[in-house]
Structures are given as structure tokens and as C-alpha cells.
Simulated scan of single mutants.
Amino acid sequence: MNRIMVLGAGYAGLAAAVSLAGRTTRRDDVQITVVNAEERFTERLRLHQAASGQRLADLRIPELLDGTRVEFVRGWVTGVDPAARSVRIDDERVLEYDRLVYALGSVADTAAVPGVDDHAYTLNSAHDAQLLARRLASLGSGTVAVCGSGLTGVEAAAEIAEQHPALDVVLIGRQEPGSTLGPKAKAYLHGALARLGVRVVGGVEIVKVLSESVELAGGDSVAADVVLWTSGVRVPPLAAAAGFEVDERGRIVTDAALRSVSHPEVYAIGDAAAIRQGYGVMHGTCQSGMPTGVHAAVSIVREFSGKQPKRFRFGYLHAPISLGRHDAVIQFTRPDDSPKKLHLTGRRAVWYKETVSSSPWPSFVRLKKFPSAGSFAWRRGGRFTR
């Protein structure tokens, strides 16, 4: 029996599991297990909506996997033993594998700055987003500081400002919002934030978070009733503790086919992996994570057939950014994620984001039925581009 275990059922892990299930339906010698802390699928792309008080769809992983022969195990992974090829979960069960797909993702880096763990909210999970939503709903007025001016921070600040117009929303970060966009898309983003009343404090370094303020380098501070932390991510220490070769951020270093360079029976995908392409190491997004999951599935099936896995090649396509429920900006990119001239704004951008990139769930369903179609990932010149 070929025992395949997928750790984590986020975008990358679930893409791997569903693709594996579809590609092994005619094999009686394959057993697939998915381990995840929750039964509910976390739409991380929509957590900023949940944080602002909106209700998200209740998407259940076991329901998606129903009829696929994939076993779902609910539990927190507490340890991996690559020598024994086993995984331990929080109820002390030990699960064995022959092939492992490591997709445990990343969380907000709350350890980088003093006080973040004690005083800031995060968007690590639906539960975290709901905690923030309840806090925001209890404020009649006040200031919300969103720390981190990357795309997650921008989307969260815009969503909160739109849903809670009585609150003063401040977006704080080292870089100006939209720094990776082209000039016109960046200008539109800044105009949208201004229309929503979001104050931007850019070019600053956050040195400490207190219960009622965010302290900046140089002695300045921003008063805040609520702090949301979106600046930087970190991965669980499990991979390093297990003895996998990891990079300086704790991500598993992979070969060209996404296998661990120290343990080739392990595929590392999504945010948990340091995947090098010609333009550098990929940064974690749904856009890049899901193709890594499909590639791992295809490669494992190839190995079962006595073939060598192929090289993973990926190019970015776009940077979709919601600016509340009624506005958005889409920056189309080159494969290395640098901006092209082409971009969409306003209603066209809202349609694009909601139709093309807002939720992978329909793609998972299609992939379950038609695994060889690629579903959510199409290829151009050999590269996954979505």
C-alpha cells in the first residue's frame, strides 16, 4: 500500500489532496490521508471581510472529500519523524506515511516586534477574524491601526473603513501602500484609500505595540483602540525541529520538483516551502500555492508509475486587491511579479476579483471531477500562471 499523507488543508494542501484523489481513483494500492486542525476550510483571501463583520460561506473539507476515498483526520500536528516516516497529532495518535506532502502554511509574525502577541489581533484564522469583528462591533468610535502596508494590510484597512465608517482607520508600514504596483494602479489605490478615509502613515518602523498605541522608531507613536497586525509571516518550527533542511525563515528547502532536498520522500508546498525559480524564491500566495499542490500530486503519481517528477516552473499573472466590496484594483504582472502596464480598476476589477480569483472552492470541486484538466491552473509556455 502506498500511503500518502497531506499535512494542512489550506489552498496548497487541499489542491494536492483533491488532485491526488482524482488521479488515483483506479488504483487500489493508494491510501490518502489529510490532516488539518479544523473541518472548516479557511478562506484566507476573505478573512479581511470576516474581520469587518461579514459572514463567510461555511465550507467543509470532509464534504469536499466525500466520495474520494480520502481519509480526513482532524488534529494539530505536533511532530514529524522523517526517519520513522510518521506524524504525531495532538491526541497522541501516530500516523505513518510513505510519501508526505507538507503544507502547514504560515501565520502572522507576531514575535518580530514586542507587544504584538499581547495587544494585536491577527488574520491567521477564521476564529481570529471573528474575534476582531466582535471587538470592532463594540466600538462606537475610535481608532483602528492596521500594521503592515502590504496587500493584506491594504485590503483589511479598506474593508474595515467601509464597513465601519465611524472608526478612524490608520494604515502603518515601512513602505507606501501598493509599492509593488505600476504607477497608475498605485495612484488609484491611494485615491481609493483616501475616499474611504484611511489615513496612511508610511515610511516608518514599528518598534513596539502597547495596549493603546503603536510606537514608532524615533519616538513618535500612533494612538489606537485596536491594533491589527499584518506585517510579515513566519512558518511553524515543526520542519526545523524534525530535521528537514530549512532556510533562514524555517521553510523547507526543495529541489526543482518540490521535494525536500534532505528527505526526497517529502514534498513541501505553499508557504511552508522555499521554492526557487529563475527570478528568486517564490513568495507565498494562493496564486502560487495551489499550483504547487497540483504539481506535487502529479509528481507523486509519476513516481508510482516509475517515472521521474518534472521540474516545477511558475510565473505570476496578477495582483488582485479588493478595496472594500465596491472597488478593487488588479495589477497584471510579468512572471517574476513585476508590474505590467495593464491594470483594471473599479467595477471591472471587482468583477475580475470575485469571478477569477476570490475563491478556489469551485476549482477544487472541478478538480475533484476532472483532475487532468488542471482546472484552476492553466499553462503557458510550461508555466503555471494562476
Results as ranks from 00 to 15, higher is better:
R40D: 12
G178S: 10
R334N: 15
R174C: 01
Y188D: 12
H263P: 00
A319N: 14
Y279K: 03
A108E: 13
G289F: 03
A83T: 15
L14H: 05
S125C: 08
V204C: 12
I206W: 06
S357N: 12
D118Y: 02
L342T: 12
R23M: 11
V34D: 06
L216Y: 06
A120Q: 05
R60P: 03
G278C: 02
E162P: 15
A328T: 12
L210A: 14
A9Q: 05
P291Y: 01
R366S: 08
L47S: 06
D128G: 10
L216N: 13
T110F: 02
V209E: 10
R313P: 07
A240S: 10
I321Y: 07
V146F: 08
A373N: 08
D29T: 10
P291E: 02
T25P: 09
Q277D: 15
G8N: 03
H263R: 13
A194Q: 15
D28Y: 07
D337F: 08
L367N: 13
I89G: 02
V201D: 11
G289Q: 05
H295K: 02
K353Q: 09
D271V: 08
D336C: 13
D81F: 01
V356A: 07
A268Q: 01
A377T: 15
V198Y: 09
V200D: 07
A108C: 03
L20D: 00
I330P: 04
V329W: 09
A83P: 00
G105W: 01
L131V: 05
S106L: 03
L132R: 03
S125H: 04
G191P: 13
S262H: 00
S363V: 11
V169N: 12
A192Y: 04
A274T: 01
A272M: 00
G243V: 10
P114C: 07
A158V: 14
T355W: 06
L193E: 15
D327Q: 10
W361A: 10
G280K: 08
Q49H: 13
A111K: 09
G346D: 11
N36D: 15
D128L: 07
A273M: 04
P62C: 08
P177K: 11
G173N: 02
F244A: 00
L56D: 14
S260H: 01
A192M: 14
G142K: 03
I4A: 00
L47V: 07
G374A: 06
V200W: 07
N2V: 14
V226N: 07
A120N: 01
L56C: 07
S363R: 12
S141N: 10
S260P: 09
L189Q: 15
D91N: 11
P177I: 15
R46F: 04
K341R: 14
S358M: 11
V77P: 00
V207D: 04
E43T: 09
R60C: 11
G284K: 12
S86C: 07
G142T: 04
A84M: 14
G53K: 04
D271R: 08
A108M: 12
E162A: 11
L258D: 04
R27L: 12
